[in-house]
Design a protein around this nucleic acid. Structure first.
Lengths: 71, 71
DNA sequence: CAAAAATGTAATATATACTTGACATTTTAT
DNA sequence: ATAAAATGTCAAGTATATATTACATTTTTG
C-alpha cells in the first residue's frame, strides 16, 4: 500500500516499462513493481539509480510519499 | 569507505551526537555510525527520518555521496 | 477479436540492513 | 591528568530487500 505514483509518473514520462527501467538500472522487474506499489522500502543507492535514469532528484520522487509507516 | 560527511556535518550543525540522532529517529547508535562511515546502504525511509530530524532534504544529505559502488 | 506486451503477485532462496551487547579508542570536559 | 562522553568496531541474531522462476490478469496493439 502507499503507492509511489511520482515514480510511476516519471517512468511514464520517459515512456519506459517497468522492465525497461529495471534493465537500465540492473535490477529485477519485480523490484521496480514492488517499489511502485509500496511493497518495498528501497535502499538509497537504488533510489539514486532510479533518479538518474529518470532525470529526477531524490526530492522529486522519494520525498514524503512513504512518510511515516514503519521506520 | 566513502563516508557521508554531509550527514556528519548536518548532525554537528544541530549539536547532536550519533546517540542523540539515533534516539530521535528510533534506531541504533551503531546504525547511524555505520551510515556515516559508509558501511550501510540505508533504506529510503530511514534517510527521510534522518532528514526530518536534521531539517535537511534528501538531496542535501544523500544525493551523489554514495554514487557508484554497488547497485 | 486475437496476440503481444505490461503488470500484479506468489514461493523459495540469498544478501544485507539493522539490533543487541560489549569493549576499545578517541575526544571533550573538569 | 583524570573522568566522562563520543565514536569505532566486532560477533551473533533477526528482519527484510532483492533475485529467480513462474503464472495469472490487465492493457495495448494489430
Amino acid at each position: 500500500m502507499n503507492k509511489n505514483l511520482k515514480l510511476k509518473s516519471a517512468r511514464a514520462a520517459k515512456d519506459m516499462s517497468q522492465k525497461d527501467l529495471a534493465e537500465a538500472i540492473g535490477v529485477t522487474r519485480q523490484t521496480i513493481n514492488a517499489i511502485e506499489n509500496g511493497d518495498y522500502n528501497p535502499s538509497i543507492k537504488l533510489c539514486i539509480s532510479i533518479c538518474k535514469v529518470l532525470d529526477k532528484s531524490l526530492n522529486d520522487i522519494f520525498w514524503e510519499d512513504d512518510n511515516d509507516e514503519n521506520r
